[in-house]
Amino acid sequence: MQRTLDQLKINEKGVVASLYGNGATQQRLLEMGVSDGAEVEVLRYAPLGDPMEIRVRGFHLSLRKAEAALVLLEESAG
């Protein structure tokens, strides 16, 4: 079962496989570097559990879980 970005725990890493959907949200994620092959790491969740902060391509990005659910991760080896 392939996981999506919103399913990662704090400090967990993953590699982006592809993105669901099209349109403004998907394109925005792509431009910000959340595109296939990029390594992502979850840094923290906001006090109310949403949004989340990730590290991607050397910088920090905040996004909601709903948006992170569009990001399909590669199946990890372990």
């Binding site: 403004a24 925005r28 994620l29 910000m32 920090h60 990005l61 905040s62 996004l63 909601r64």
Partner: peptide
């Protein structure tokens, strides 16, 4: 729809 909240944390 709620617009995306994809924001750089500088």
């Amino acid at each position: 729809d709620q617009p995306p909240f994809i924001l750089e944390i500088p």
